[in-house]
Design a protein around this nucleic acid. Structure first.
Length: 461
RNA sequence: GGCCACGUGGCGGAGUGGUUACGCAGCGGACUGCAAAUCCGUGUACGGGGGUUCGAUUCCCUCCGUGGCCUCCA
């Protein structure tokens, strides 16, 4: 099975040819930990989790290294810590813990390494000094700047000619820059701002620029070159462009990562998500209302490179689908591994540039097969196939229980009402029976009269 | 202004140079006291205009619309 991935560098679906198939290496830009992650932040987390699962399926679980960094040095962090009157460390630790809880609820595996920027200052200094030594960077007014014209093919990722960048710039250029496009590798820390000993003989303590940390952490944990680099499409320029410049110039390599992958943007009910519009939703807020698996399926229903419109309706669809699928798999154990043909069929679809919507379509088909043939093996295979997308990891019982936990009414009262309705039906008092059914329906509870004369219920949205 | 994406049936959303996925909703039927769930069946599409082609939703051009990025802001 050939894995083909859309590469922003070449603007084409390229077959993945890992440097070392025994250790496929992937780096994804992680969160800046100063506040709860919003649903837009969840997109790359889920998308690259699917890719991670697929890579492990194709190359073997022990043959993939997935690194996702934690940015714990940033002006927004400083501002928020000051605002809340807590230490920077407390803020970043607390926010990181939230992030871990949120992403676990979304069914995402932990990356192999989650490096923190503040623990890689030494690597950053090494990179910066090497860039200065090779003439790609210079010191100016206690800053260290990367000199963009020193790299002839700068801009290859975003395909942005240098002269146009200058022409289009709408920000005042700092006077100490040799070239308007030069960007900061290291900057001085004023009093009260976290600082570390500066490189290049600069006396004042300083802190890293925005981009150098990813070059440092990917170098430390994956090496000078690696296979896949991912992140949101908004990071293409300048962040990833600058990472490439730093790493390639520091290590004198032709590439930093072979494949650059970018997920599309997320809109909320048709509008750009922004705090000012008041339509800003955190993962946590959504998890209060929906199982994480619903969010995951809704997210994967749109191809990762397409813009996604995040809607309540979409969540409802996802919930309904999972209801159906869990009913089919019941509490069966998943069959996983290459011997499961269903799983291979899903892998095949994902291998085409992570076409999750196509995989989901196929799951609908497999669900039908599993449901119609009364063969437990097929249900186990169906479940294993869904597992590759990180779906149907639980059991039907657990799913129903979690759904019922969200209902405002306690189970005993529901049971009492059902008993009363059954009695009314027996007495052919259908008016009263329907009245009870409507009462429960208004509370989001759907009744089902079974063939054997019993009545069961489930949550409907 | 520059660069880059995207525009598919009522909604969501894949895909393809020629036989029009899939899900939800709708409609018809079975089941039911009536429903729900389930099962069976079923209709509807490829932003506008040019071009290439025997043939385009699929390739090219253009227009319109939407969105993103344009340097320290994930």
């Amino acid at each position: 099975m050939e894995l083909r991935l859309y590469n922003t560098l070449t603007r084409a679906k390229d077959p993945l040819r890992p440097f070392d198939p025994h250790n496929v290496r992937m780096y994804v830009c992680g969160p800046t930990v100063y506040d709860h992650a919003h649903i837009g932040n969840a997109r790359p987390v889920i998308v690259f989790d699917v890719l991670y699962r697929l890579l492990r399926r194709l190359y073997g679980t022990g043959h993939v290294t997935y690194v996702r960094n934690i940015t714990d040095v940033d002006d927004k962090i400083n501002a928020r810590a000051a605002e809340r009157g807590i230490s920077i460390r407390d803020l970043t630790e607390e926010t990181y813990r939230w992030f871990r809880e949120d992403t676990a609820a979304l069914g995402c595996l932990r990356p192999d390494v989650e490096p923190r920027a503040t623990e890689h200052i030494a690597e950053m200094r090494t990179l910066i000094e090497s860039l200065v030594a090779s003439g790609h960077a210079y010191v100016a007014e206690e800053h260290v700047l990367f000199h963009v014209p020193s790299m002839p093919d700068y801009g290859a990722l975003s395909r942005r000619p240098l002269d146009e960048m200058v022409a289009g710039a709408r920000v005042d250029v700092a006077p100490y820059k040799r070239d308007p496009t030069d960007f900061v590798l290291w900057k001085p820390s004023p009093d009260g701002v976290p600082g570390w000993p500066s490189p290049c003989g600069i006396a004042t303590p300083g802190r890293p620029g925005w981009h150098i940390e990813c070059s440092a952490m990917s170098w430390r944990h994956l090496g000078e070159t690696f296979d896949i680099h991912g992140g949101g499409i908004d990071l293409v320029f300048p962040h990833h462009e600058n990472e490439i410049a730093q790493s390639r110039c520091a290590f004198q390599t032709g590439v930093m990562a072979q494949v650059w992958m970018h997920n599309g943007f997320l809109m909320l009910e048709g509008e750009k998500m922004s705090k000012s519009l008041g339509n800003f939703v955190t993962i946590r807020e959504l998890l209060d209302e929906w199982p994480g698996e619903v969010l995951r399926l809704a997210m994967l229903s749109t191809h990762y490179r397409q813009p996604i419109n995040w809607t309540r309706q979409g969540l409802g669809f996802a919930a309904k689908t999972l209801d159906k699928w869990y009913r089919i798999v019941g509490d069966a154990e998943a069959e996983t591994g290459p011997d499961n043909p269903f799983e291979s069929e899903i892998a095949e679809r994902l291998a085409d540039d992570l076409n999750a919507p196509s995989a989901i379509t196929h799951l609908h088909h497999l669900a039908e097969v599993a449901e119609q043939e009364d063969d437990p093996a097929l249900r186990r295979r169906f479940k294993g196939a869904a597992n590759l997308l990180g779906l149907l990891d639980g059991t039907d019982s657990a799913w129903r229980t979690s759904q019922k936990a969200a209902v405002a009414l306690d189970e005993a009262s529901i049971a009492a009402l059902i008993a009363e309705r059954l009695a009314a039906r027996k007495a052919r008092d259908f008016k009263r029976a329907d009245q009870i059914r409507e009462e429960l329906a208004s509370k989001g509870i759907a009744l089902m009269d079974n063939k054997d004369g019993t009545t069961s219920w489930e949550v409907s949205r």
